[in-house]
Amino acid sequence: MTAMPDAASPASPVAPGKTPATAVRARRDRHLIRKAATYIVMTVAALLVLVPFAWMISSSLKRNNEVFTVPIQWIPDEFRWSNFVEIWDRIPMVTYLRNSAFLAITITFLQVLTGSFAAYGFSKVRFPGRDALFVAYIATIAVPWQAYMVPQYIMMQEAGLTNTFWSIILLQAFGAFGVFLMRQYYMSIPDELVEAARIDGLSEYSIYLRIMLPLSKPALASLALLTFVNTWNDYMGPFIYLTSNELWTVQLGLRSFIGQYSADYAMIMTGAVISVLPIVVIFLLGQRYFIRGIATTGLKG
């Protein structure tokens, strides 16, 4: 027979001089300390990231001779809100913002559409050479843009699309990264769900529209946000293909403004704040879906 443990012996080893309740409290205190330390580190890191943005906002509300004062004066003596009115008279900011918004919205819509549709084929439709084709397509991400920049421009020039929005839209409407992101998310959706829909008589297009898209809102939001930010901040693409001032984006407009008023630092910061605000608003509205989409993408390879 197995000897029964002594009833007087403790259930778990406890350090000499400590009761089980004391040990539990010690573990809880250590957990709280680690959690507090983590929050402190993350808060400090977030503040460091926000310092340049705070300086930009502060500088946009100052006079030119107050921007580079040492030490930095974070709160101006006089808030010059007139800077945000005057800049609209200096440059056609409305035109620049409208052009950037048009390109960003159009390219975002097309990339989400083409990326999600191609990802459905690579993840849920079986055909010979599917995986090899996917690997070859994703490998194009490793090719630097400078390697095919000149051939792209020659193609657009021969097609007569330079100095038009079509050159930017056609070149950026498809992206290997979007296909990769959406495929990884689709791989986390059970194949049995798609097979059941096929048995019920749904076509591949219906499965994509009625099942895959509603289930992939977080990934779609992530791809949309990343594409919108990348297109809005793009400088080289519009710089190469758009020569008319009425077609310039906000990035080209601000660069031209800096060239003309290189010493007007406060106004430059004002334009930078205006150009960043749409990105901030878009991120705040979609951050919940963005975080969820990034966190769940790639759970299944």
Score class of each variant (00 low, 15 high):
Met42Asn: 13
Tyr289His: 07
Ala224Cys: 10
Pro278Leu: 07
Arg25Ile: 12
Arg27Ser: 15
Tyr185Lys: 14
Arg183Met: 01
Ala119Ile: 01
Tyr153Ala: 09
Ile105Asn: 03
Thr22Trp: 01
Ala37Trp: 01
Ser244Gln: 12
Val70Gly: 01
Met182Asp: 03
Ser9Lys: 10
Trp55Gly: 09
Ser216Asn: 06
Val229Ile: 13
Met187Thr: 08
Asp77Lys: 15
Met212Glu: 04
Ile294Trp: 05
Met182His: 10
Phe165Thr: 06
Gly253Glu: 01
Asp6Ala: 09
Leu161Asn: 10
Ile107Phe: 00
Thr69Tyr: 01
Ala15Cys: 09
Ile91Gln: 04
Met93Ile: 15
Trp74Tyr: 13
Leu223Ile: 06
Arg210Pro: 05
Tyr265Ser: 08
Leu181His: 03
Arg292Val: 10
Tyr120His: 07
Thr297Gly: 04
Asn245Gln: 13
Val125Tyr: 07
Ser123Pro: 06
Ala36Gly: 12
Tyr205Val: 12
Leu252His: 00
Ile207Phe: 00
Ser167Asn: 06
Asn65Thr: 13
Glu66Arg: 03
Asp234Trp: 03
Ile57Leu: 15
Gly298Met: 10
Arg126Leu: 02
Lys217Gly: 08
Tyr96Glu: 03
Ile91Pro: 00
Ser123His: 08
Lys35Trp: 05
Trp81Ala: 11
Thr270Gln: 01
Leu97Ile: 11
Tyr265Ile: 11
Ile57Arg: 06
Ser203Met: 09
Leu47Pro: 09
Glu195Ser: 14
Trp166Gly: 04
Phe177Trp: 11
Val273Gln: 02
Gly160Arg: 07
Val250Cys: 03
Tyr186Ala: 08
Lys35Gln: 15
Leu252Arg: 01
Val67Asp: 02
Val112Arg: 02
Pro151Trp: 04
Tyr137Thr: 06
Gln251Gly: 09
Ser188Tyr: 02
Ile268Asn: 01
Phe283Trp: 07
Thr270Leu: 03
Ala104Asn: 03
Ala295Asn: 12
Ser116Asp: 06
Ala46Arg: 05
